[in-house]
Design a protein around this nucleic acid. Structure first.
Lengths: 332, 332
DNA sequence: TTGTAAGCGTTATCAT
DNA sequence: ATGATAACGCTTACAA
């Protein structure tokens, strides 16, 4: 799949010829192994003259640890702002070490997750950061045995023991409940995402309120709107709503607007949204810190690569309630 | 940087031994070269028994075209929703071909752009999709000569001839002007991003209105807010505002709210924002199509890799005005 | 310190 | 159609 009359890229052999030294000496210079300064100078000259760049793939092939100085990152969707922030967190840490990142979207499909993980692995990544879609990660056992570091992000691994970095989902929703109760609410509704998702389950667990006021498996904005509407139009309707996910929050917002209740029903959403402070009222949210999620994940990965073989760790990143108005509305 | 007592990954040699065939035959089977069905069967068995996966780096090393079936993607910032959508567009096309993607953020820094491009190239990518930060891309000439396909996204290449995929910045702003004029506006202000940016310049060019009502180089939300405020408090203030960028739009929104004029001054923003239809009034925007930008870029890349050597192409992706209220406010 | 040569896992060439 | 073997660009014993 590569075309055209290509100008051959200069190799170490070319550099060696120009500098008048052996191939091994060039390798030493390129890898900062002490070499006679005079020879090193000649090599550097040849390198710049020829525009030589070491072939990373070939280098890793023979290297003792087979390291490629690259990581694989599997997200639900690279274009989802939450996950792309995780991506950036990982990139920031990897960049400090000159490590490159392969990234891909699983679209919450276990097979795609597996394909991506194995493809990345076939390309020789040193580590894999995975937002898991599947529920059985035993297939990664073999990769780990071959030396690939593993970390799971946002959701824990299943059927395998490995490091994980998670948001404090339970604590976040608990804080929201406490916040609403402090404002005087006694009937609080909870609208959640697909119950099979780890995060959705955790957030529901943090709610712990009246099961009659819970609606789960709201997979679309429309479903969330419909569920919110039903809850709010029923007798003994809740005076406040907690939404377990962004899409659900937006659906609930639609319902509130349609019923003209955006100023009278309290609302707290999980996960921050852009422009949350421009809505009227401003949107109170339980904010996560996806950048921190990514940074911690990358740090765990590098710790493992540097030889840390302590038992699998689980890092929980705090969530934070941001009051902007919608969550401070008092019951009628 | 790789650690622990690693279980050696099975190689073709191992597969050959188990299947009782030669190394070359295994390679043929793995690469779908016709082979006696009986032998092929034995090989496939051995492959699954051992959990063999071909080493992509080693394969590329010896392959005639040196292809690695990977692409490099350099964005301003992977966590910026606009660019992460471009990323997804590229991924969707690459996935169809089983091509993996390295991605990285340049933070609009020419040196970082160059570092990333050369690192990706050193890792053997077949092509490079670049949202350019620098203003001199001659350094990529050598990579292209070595067979690396090139495409520029969102902003054109400089000092090098190469394919590019751009948004219709000029047309978008023109449409906004026409839209506001149709609503009766005669004094329209324009708030723009840093003038040195290609997109900012194009959008200003599309405006073409009264220079006295133009404020450029609004690099922060605060600067935009301040500029909007000054424009609106001056004698002979504009009755409508066009904002050349997201951050600027948000700053202007702040100013409008602070002055209590969000219901009386018309506003059109460039680039869509999440929740734009929940603001009151809803936010009228000139929407871009970042996914299409990415898809076109990837298609150009693959066309080049498949041998297309026609002159450099420039694809312009249309923008679209989405009316949600703020742009339909009539002058007082 | 420097050079020689073997070898990493694969593909490609050449006989058979 | 299959197998032996050289070669890809590099790192790394081992020798000098």
């Amino acid at each position: 799949m590569k075309s055209g009359a290509a100008t051959r890229r200069p190799t170490m052999k070319d550099v060696a010829a120009v500098a008048g030294v052996s191939l091994a000496t060039v390798s030493r210079v390129v890898n900062d192994v002490p070499v006679d300064p005079q020879l090193a100078g000649r090599v550097h000259d040849a390198v710049t003259r020829l525009g030589y760049r070491r072939d990373a793939a070939a280098a890793g092939l023979r290297r003792a640890n087979r390291s490629s100085r690259s990581l694989g990152l599997i997200l639900d969707d690279v274009s989802n702002p939450f996950f792309s922030a995780v991506h950036r967190g990982i990139e920031d840490i990897a960049r400090e070490r000159g490590v490159l990142i392969f990234s891909g979207s699983s679209d919450d499909d276990a097979d795609l997750e597996r394909d991506l993980a194995l493809s990345f692995s076939a390309h020789g990544v040193d580590g894999l950061a995975v937002v898991p879609a599947g529920h059985d990660h035993r297939y990664l056992e073999r990769e780990r045995a071959a030396g690939v570091a593993l970390v799971f992000v946002d959701r824990p691994p299943q059927r395998i023991l490995a490091d994980a970095v998670l948001s404090d989902n339970v604590g976040g929703v608990r804080a929201a409940v406490a916040h609403l109760e402090a404002a005087g609410h006694r009937r609080i509704g909870f609208l959640g995402d697909r119950a099979r998702l780890f995060t959705a389950g955790e957030r529901l667990a943090g709610f712990g309120g009246d099961p009659a006021l819970v609606r789960m498996d709201l997979a679309s904005c429309e479903a969330a709107q419909q569920a919110a509407r039903e809850l709010l139009e029923a007798a003994d309707a809740p005076t406040a709503l907690i939404c377990g996910q962004n899409r659900v929050t937006i659906g609930a917002l639609h319902a509130l607007h349609a019923l003209g209740r955006q100023g009278t029903t309290a609302l707290v959403g999980f996960d921050d949204v852009a422009l949350g402070d421009f809505l009227s009222p401003g949107l109170t949210v339980i904010a996560q810190d996806p950048f921190a999620l990514g940074r911690h994940a990358a740090e765990l990965l590098f710790a493992r690569l540097e030889g840390d073989d302590s038992p699998p760790r689980r890092i929980v990143v705090p969530t934070r309630l941001i009051a902007r108005g919608s969550g401070e509305i008092r019951p009628a």
